[in-house]
Amino acid sequence: MLELTHELGNVVLTGAFTDPLAAAALATGLAALGAGYAEGGIGAAAVGAMAEDEDLFVNGLILTVLPETLVILALVVVFIAQSA
């Protein structure tokens, strides 16, 4: 994580955003950040619901990982950038 931040700093400082791969990496990272934020809330609610009714475990799990699709979609950007 720390090296990544360093790398990101470098990229921004040297103005290397013309490199499509760097931009794609940034996009993926931001998407992951958003997904994490969303999962925080959903996870808290899912655990609350599970505490009341254990049968909700499967539903809770599915709903919790749902924002993960964001990252998968963002990953597509990397491949597009690579082939470009």
């Binding site: 808290a44 609610a45 655990v47 609350g48 619901a49 009341e52």
Partner: peptide, 13 residues
């Protein structure tokens, strides 16, 4: 504050 957790439990109840 953690409304998500509390609201989920309260709704179940």
């Amino acid at each position: 504050s953690n409304p998500e957790y509390v609201v989920a439990r309260v709704r179940a109840r």
